[in-house]
């Protein structure tokens, strides 16, 4: 069973980290990724650039509209994700809780949709 762990973080906190703090955070994420890999649970994972570097695209009635992002007006924004493969939701929630993001932001756990079902 695959789950997406969507990482929602306060970008301001992230951007105001000094070099040492940033190094520490990177170290925590690396360690987390490694433990996912060692457990055989890691499928994929990507960090994202801050939401202000992205864009919102709509194409309603074939009219393309481009807006500055992000679309969720919240303090925390999607900062990256992991795709994991584990037996059930309890295992997914355990991994989510261990993610560095869970201690400062929010980790959303969402099952991957197997369209055949």
């Amino acid at each position: 069973m695959q789950y997406m762990l969507a990482l929602y973080e306060d970008e301001n906190v992230f951007m105001n980290l000094n070099e040492a703090e940033m190094g520490e955070l990177m170290g925590a994420y690396n360690a987390y990724t490694t433990s996912l890999q060692e457990a055989g649970a890691f499928v994929a994972g990507e960090p994202l650039e801050p939401s202000a570097t992205g864009a919102i695209i709509r194409n309603h009635n074939n009219t393309m509209q481009v807006q500055d992002g992000p679309f969720v007006e919240a303090k925390e924004h999607l900062g990256g994700f992991y795709l994991i493969d584990v037996p059930d939701l309890d295992a997914a929630l355990d991994w989510a809780a261990q993610c560095p993001c869970a201690s400062t932001g929010t980790v959303e756990v969402r099952p991957i949709w197997n369209i055949g079902d």
Binding site: M1, P87, D88, L89, D90, V109, P111
Partner: peptide
Amino acid sequence: KAAQIPFIIP
């Protein structure tokens, strides 16, 4: 069902 909540004793 969709999120596969396990039937277990925690």
